[in-house]
């Protein structure tokens, strides 16, 4: 785009690259340390000797994790949850955001509707009443308890309705001229031109489902139905050191090994870390205008 670069511009570019590279280093550092600990001996890990490189390199931690059925099982449940949950999230989010992106002349009581949704973002009844509702719906111990209560992330709705609003009016009007109704306009025109926004929201929804752990522990009746993060929570949570038996100590040694924790943390985070690079190809500029021109 820019053919001739001024000296100032060149200096800026160099500074920019350096700065961003430094920022990246700063951000990758904790993960590097987790990775280094996971490849270190449990002694080195427990002594806090590991910084950036493994000490007493070993694969023991990964071998141990490989023998743990809990890890893989909960991983599978998380995949199921993410696939089901994100599909539902996206569907409902799009369905709600589209009408709300219209103005009051097209959707009467629009303002009231928006506030009805926004209100739920700020107020909630708390754990006990929510639990009772889920229980009365007989959703305890089923994947639906993890998927339905949060099926409409209001933040994403608001974000999406703002993106929808920016779609050029001519595009929609052309569609209506061709005789399309709201439904087909939404799916044939609005959704395809909103890919960057949808990619963003898919990412948020995925991350939201991936990171959620509390609902798993509360709504699932057996640990073998836990999604990954609920299981991880039981690993990384600090242990009460005031009341242990010899038997507990025996177990503590297994679960407190920091290299094993680190290996699970790393393996647990890996898939979600890979999601963003995959979604990045939807973040292309000019999609909206491109389709107007054609």
């Amino acid at each position: 785009m820019v053919r001739r670069k001024s000296p100032g511009r060149t200096a800026f570019i160099y500074c920019n690259y350096t700065l961003l590279a430094l920022l990246s280093l700063l951000c990758i550092f904790p993960l590097i340390q987790v990775l280094a600990i996971s490849f270190s001996s449990s002694y080195a890990a427990a002594s806090g000797l590991v910084r950036f490189f493994p000490v007493d390199f070993t694969l023991d931690a990964y071998k141990y994790v490989a023998t743990k059925p809990e890890f893989l099982r909960s991983f599978g449940i998380t995949i199921e949850r993410v696939l089901l949950g994100v599909s539902i999230n996206m569907l409902v989010t799009i369905l709600v955001a589209y009408p709300l992106s219209k103005d009051s002349s097209q959707l009467r009581f629009r303002t009231a509707f928006v506030w009805l949704f926004v209100f739920t973002m700020l107020f909630n009844g708390g754990l006990i009443p929510t639990y009772v509702v889920i229980k009365d719906l007989h959703m305890l111990n089923s994947i639906w308890a993890l998927v339905l209560p949060g099926a409409l992330p209001i933040f994403n709705v608001i974000l999406l309705l703002n993106f929808f609003r920016n779609i050029p009016k001519e595009l929609l009007e052309a569609s209506f001229m061709d005789g399309a109704n709201q439904w087909s306009t939404l799916w044939r025109i609005v959704v395809p031109v909103s890919l960057p926004a949808l990619a963003t929201i898919t990412l948020f929804a995925t991350v939201g489902h991936w990171n959620a752990w509390f609902d798993g522990i509360i709504y699932m009746n057996q640990p073998d139905k836990y999604p990954l993060q609920s299981y991880m929570q039981t690993i990384i949570v600090a242990r009460d050191m005031s009341n242990l038996s010899l038997d507990d100590i025996d177990k503590l040694k297994n679960v407190s090994d920091r290299n094993i924790k680190a290996a699970q943390i790393f393996l647990g985070a890996l898939p979600i870390l890979l999601i963003y690079p995959l979604l990045q190809r939807f973040f292309m500029t000019g999609i909206v205008m491109g389709s107007v021109k054609e």
Binding site: L91, V92, T93, L95, V96, Y98, P99, L100, K102, Q106, L107, F113, L116, F117, T120, F123, N124, G125, G126, I128, P129, T130, V132, V133, L137, L148, P149, G150, A151, L152, V157, N181, Q182, W183, L186
Partner: peptide, 26 residues
Amino acid sequence: NYSLYLMLLPGLALIVIFNYVPMAGL
């Protein structure tokens, strides 16, 4: 345009069940 209201329905149902009903707990 009634379809616009229809589109809102699933979302409204969800927040009523999982947000507004439990709000009695306040």
